[in-house]
Structure formats: structure tokens, C-alpha cells
């Protein structure tokens, strides 16, 4: 059964519709990649799924129950965690303080730090450094660690690869695959498709607010993407 489901979701900013009925579902333990060119509405899908942006139509289902219109804070408590684009970390706070901010979940500082350092040992070595001085990949790990501190059932990742070297991106997605194996439903938004498709169980291509293609990532997807990104075939 799918843990997160979007059914016919429509969304608009200032009266301009950017999502025209999006259907998408993610099961526990599954990684779903949402791909598409710039401006297709990918980030908006995540905003709807995390409750930050209320949809103008359609439904959001969480574990089969209607969760449309629930406030982001309550969705977060229900186990939906968004790691926003551009590394959701506080650059002028140390790694420890960044993790300390997650104690609102009810877990203690020690617990959070311990599990974060166990998963990402490099963070343990940098615990007193300001997050802004970490490398891009390390900042992204910190953002992931902060997300995982909420013990999420659904993890929403926005452009994890932004500005990172390909090797670092590959390593990050290996970690994401590991997280999914523990039973978390993961929805990844990416413009750079190659890395995420190596771990994705399912892919969807969003163009101008509509899902144009959906299925198992295989060789036919490559040709599809070429046409959507570069407009060669129509």
C-alpha cells in the first residue's frame, strides 16, 4: 500500500496554475524520482506534499487517510519530512547546534547526535564547526541528518545534487537508498536525473505541471527525457 499519495493535485500561485492534476504515489521502502525540466512544478509538488503550499484541487493522502489542508507542523509530526533545496542548514550555527534545533521532536540532544554521527561519521568529526564552513556534500549530509532526526515515515528531498560534484552526489544517493531500505518512503525531486535513477524504483517526468511519463526507469526513459529537456522529439 502506498504511504504517500497525491491524487489529481492542482496548485496555483497568484491565480496562475502550475500543477494541472498530478497523480503520484510512494510506498514504504520505495524511492520515487520526480524528474523534469526547470519550471515544470517539481518543487511545488513537494510543497504540497509537505503542507507548505495548500493545493487548489485534488487530495493528499497519508497512509490512506486524507491529509489535505493539514498544517506543515502537524504533517511533520505525522512523519512527513522535507529537506528543502539549497541545503536546509543554519550556516552560522555549529553542527551540534544545528542538530540541537531538532530536539523539538521530543528526542534528546544525545540521541539525535548519536544517531546522526553513526550514520554520517564525518559530521561527528566536524561537530564544533559552523555548518557554513562544511563542504557542500557535508552540508547536505547534515540536512539529511536533521531530517532523519524527526524519524520520518516519508522523506521529501529537493534537488539534493545542486552544485555538488558527481561523485559526491552518487555517494549521497547511496545513503538515501540505505534510508529507504529501512522502510522510509522517499520522494526525490531532481533536475539531474542520472544519479537518482540508479537507486530509484519508480520515476515520473513532470512537464509544465503535468506528469507526462511514469513507470520503471529503463532505457526508454532516456529518450523521453531527451525530448522533454531538449525538445527534439515532440
Amino acid at each position: 500500500m502506498s504511504l504517500l499519495e497525491l491524487a489529481g493535485v492542482r496548485a496555483a500561485y497568484n491565480g496562475i496554475t502550475v500543477l494541472h492534476g498530478v497523480d503520484l504515489s510512494v510506498a514504504a521502502g520505495q524511492v520515487v524520482a520526480l524528474l523534469g525540466p526547470n519550471g515544470a512544478g517539481k518543487t511545488t509538488v513537494l510543497k504540497v506534499a509537505s503542507g507548505v503550499h495548500p493545493p487548489s484541487g485534488g487530495r493528499l493522502l497519508l497512509g490512506g487517510r486524507d491529509a489535505t489542508g493539514i498544517r506543515p507542523g502537524d504533517l511533520a509530526r505525522a512523519g512527513v519530512c522535507l529537506v528543502p533545496e539549497g541545503r536546509g542548514v543554519f550556516p552560522n550555527l555549529s553542527v551540534r547546534d544545528n542538530l540541537l534545533m531538532m530536539t523539538f521532536t521530543g528526542r534528546t540532544r544525545e540521541e539525535i547526535e548519536e544517531s546522526a554521527y553513526a550514520r554520517f561519521p564525518v559530521l561527528g568529526r566536524r561537530r564544533t564547526q559552523h555548518a557554513g564552513t562544511l563542504s557542500g556534500g557535508e552540508q547536505q549530509m547534515l540536512a539529511l541528518a536533521r531530517g532523519l532526526a524527526t524519524d520520518p515515515a516519508v522523506l521529501l528531498l529537493d534537488e539534493l545534487s545542486m552544485g555538488l560534484a558527481p561523485l559526491v552526489v552518487a555517494e549521497l544517493y547511496e545513503r538515501v537508498a540505505g534510508i529507504a531500505r529501512q522502510g522510509v518512503a522517499v520522494l526525490v525531486v531532481e533536475q539531474f536525473a542520472t544519479a537518482v535513477l540508479k537507486i530509484a524504483d519508480h520515476a515520473a517526468v513532470l512537464v509544465r505541471g503535468r506528469v507526462q511519463w511514469q513507470g520503471h526507469p529503463d532505457s526508454s526513459l532516456h529518450a523521453e527525457l531527451s525530448s522533454y529537456y531538449l525538445g527534439s522529439a515532440t
Partner: peptide, 16 residues
């Protein structure tokens, strides 16, 4: 030509 260029697609999809 650009539409058929493999390096261009690679740039958009991330390096393989």
C-alpha cells in the same frame, strides 16, 4: 545539432 548532442543531454541529466 544541439538537440542530438550527447554531451548536452549529459549536462542536463548529470554526468553518467
Amino acid at each position: 545539432l544541439i538537440q542530438r548532442d550527447e554531451t548536452v543531454l549529459a549536462a542536463y541529466l548529470g554526468e553518467a
